[in-house]
Design a protein around this nucleic acid. Sequence first.
RNA 1: AGGGGAGUCGCCAAGUUGGUUAAGGCAUCGGAUUUUGAUUCCGACAUGCGAAGGUUCGAAUCCUUCUUCCCCUGCCA
Length: 561
Amino acid sequence: MSNELPVSNFIRHIIDTDLASGKRSAVQTRFPPEPNGYLHIGHAKAITVNFGLAQDYQGLCNLRMDDTNPEKEEDEYVQAIQDDVRWLGFDWSGETRFASDYFQQLYDYAEELIQTGKAFVCDLTPDEMRAYRGNFEVPGRESPYRARSVDENLDLFRRMKAGEFADGSKTLRLKIDMQSPNLNMRDPVIYRIKRAEHHRTGNDWCIYPMYDYTHCISDAIEGITHSLCTLEFEDHRPLYDWVLDNISIGNHPQQIEFSRLETLYVVTSKRKLKQLVDEQLVGGWDDPRMPTISGMRRRGYSPEGVRLFAQRAGVSKTPNVVDFSSLEGAVRETLEEASPRVMAVLDPIKVTLTNFDPATTGSRSAPFHPHHEEFGERLVPIARELYIERDDFAEVPPPKWQRLTPGGEVRLRYSYVIKCDDVVKDADGKVVELKCSIDPDTLGQNPVGRKVKGVIHWVSAEHAVEAEVRLYDRLFTEARPDAVRGDDGQYVDFKQFINADSLKVVTGYVEACVSDAAPETRYQFERLGYFVTDRYDHKAGGKPVFNRTVTLRDSWAKENG
RNA sequence: AGGGGAGUCGCCAAGUUGGUUAAGGCAUCGGAUUUUGAUUCCGACAUGCGAAGGUUCGAAUCCUUCUUCCCCUGCCA
């Protein structure tokens, strides 16, 4: 859990005011996803806000599946959503709720609305209804079926439920105001006939309630006090309130809207994410490049880091577009404290230590964390042949270079200072081996009379284990891949901006102590970044499989482009 | 006959019953420490609050006008 203090925001003001005035005596929130896709980074913020607020005010937060459209919703998603919320570190109040649990109550309230003359059965086709609705400039006209008697409406609605009418042939509508400038108030449909198998209620129902009607009542049934949602529902609030004001229900939660979170270089529309999965442009919903919660998990992001990011983004009504670097920064920050260090070489050059002597050349023990003794330590064995990173050697070094050069010296992390005496190349001129010599007086101490500034990581060729290492980069090359317009003014297909280099798989050499790591074990590979053993493909004792979560900050790379 | 929202540093975001020098985070730039060019630590970073007027001893906060951006015409959520 992050230790940052809650930041003041307008929702907290509302809650404070409600608590102070006695309007509310406790806080009850809810996170209400539709189980039609996987949760993404935007949902992570909504989850953090809803559960976080409940925690801060010693209240409760429910998890409710908004499952009123049987054509889109599946159990697979219900399961995944629950896993994601738990992984993020939150626990909901009681069982998972389902809007479908309230179908009977919803139906009963609908009959009540018919009885009080506030709802009617309408026979208009979708096209006719659209025409009657009018538009921004033109007021709507009342449906010719609006004047049906209570008895007729009741009879018709019951027969809708009984399955006497074809799909789409009739709807139940509220009688509000066809003149309203708010289109949501122009006699909105609250029930439609749809013969589709529901993931929970099967074929019990052939009529299904609409979101606007269902959501407010579900909130009220659950005793929600503050119903938080995104900005696009502001226009729906009058309808939310109208429904609760016109049925015999005791509780009236307050809907409060805040802006959704967006990050650059990703897409977060469920439809587009599904496209990436269906067209196999990524490995699945949990591909580590996906901005889904399960993707971030597999990438190695920590739940603490994701939460920290969400908290830092804040809660407001202004567009919440946050730099991707903010997410990475929050993740790094949590990983820095929590990850054991180990050395790995991902792009090796062989180094031969010409004066290596098994009798006198020693190995040191190194701590797993520079600031946390309790992480323990391990022996870092040295041998005649080593691997170092290709990037750490330059025949012609740029200015301020602190790494190995011909004739130059560098410190092997947790080992000796070495000097490069000879560069061996193949027929193409590619460096294939460096012959170096150890300064025997530099194990655990600085050389006398000179300073060696550079420190590089390395592994012993004979001791290290081979590992599959997946290097991830951003999925898109455009900051807003779904907002680029072509010459014709139309949006360009976002899939054109997929980064061809977003995944690179290499064979690396890692200290042997990682061999027995369980899946989802995080390490920092010194000087390279944070890596995690893959949730599925890594098996303890087998050839390790690592995903690069995020690189370390690198002011050198920054300076040198 | 349109309606609903929002504009405070590169990105977020406090601040709103008007009152001293406009919080904080991310990013950035300096510098110190460092056997990770990491971490950590210090320091810098809005005479300015979408614009213009006005009220006032005093305005990001009040008034007027203007302006930019976002959302809404599913029997989706």
